[in-house]
Design a protein around this nucleic acid. Sequence first.
DNA 1: ATACTATAGTTGCAAGTACCACCTATTTTA
DNA 2: TAAAATAGGTGGTACTTGCAACTATAGTAT
Lengths: 152, 152
Amino acid sequence: MSKDRLRKQGTALYHALSHLVRVYQSRDREHICCYDISITQCNLLEVLLDHGAMRPLNLAQHLMLDKSTTSRVAETLVKKNYVARTPDPTDGRAQLIDLTENGRELVLKIRDELIEEEMAILRDLPKSVQDEAPGLLIRLAKAAQKRTSCCG
Amino acid sequence: MSKDRLRKQGTALYHALSHLVRVYQSRDREHICCYDISITQCNLLEVLLDHGAMRPLNLAQHLMLDKSTTSRVAETLVKKNYVARTPDPTDGRAQLIDLTENGRELVLKIRDELIEEEMAILRDLPKSVQDEAPGLLIRLAKAAQKRTSCCG
DNA sequence: ATACTATAGTTGCAAGTACCACCTATTTTA
DNA sequence: TAAAATAGGTGGTACTTGCAACTATAGTAT
């Protein structure tokens, strides 16, 4: 029966995902901890690197965090001189957050290191997996993101 | 050139993974927040559900957390009456941590809900992805786990 | 023009996450 | 039996996170 098959695969996916998330979180933590920042802080820098300067609210959407959390993480990074705020000339309430030169250097260095890690991981896997992995992960992320939460 | 290809794929994997981790973390947070516990607390309950009673140190390995962190998370769960400690008769220093009936019920309910989520996600994906996803995620997790950290 | 509403961002609060270094008690080993 | 190792917990510090409440600016409807 197809319902059973789906449940079996859902269960397998559930276990695989929760393990994967734990492993990568832990790995990222261990890599990033050599530097001056935490994972969340690094994520914020990455978003800026990939998408350019943006407003805190926009940043919060990318990071999937509350605006207050985002505001505080940004504040920490301002103090560490990895990002800078500038008032948005088109809206007196808004501001733009962007990488400083320091921040750009740091996030590029960390990204490079993590990409080396991924390459090392891929090297041990068969070619078919190397080819399929990124696309599959993107699909899974997109599918999950489309769904809304339970307790809205 | 194969080196270039590997780098391109490593970069793609890097982006896909970091996004996936963020999305699923956020999703789990939103699902679990309806209940009495946090993500880490839920992870701890899950490990006990899957592997049975164990010592704090063993639990820390499964969770990939420091033993002190594990100890405190367990303490919180004892207070909430989801896990219980019993002294290990074979070693006066050790103890065993296990789910209470309450804890078992809670984690089963949450797991069921998340598996339903996974099933809903799978439903929208082609059969080939449904079949391959869990295996691929497991491979990736295993490969990452084999590697050691940078700043040991 | 002016009051009402909406939006951007911050702050107070509470709980949780996380690690390091250090401590106590017990066990193992030399 | 003394020394070293191990299990677990504590103190301390810093960060994460969301909710609710707040300030200031912007937009809207009289």
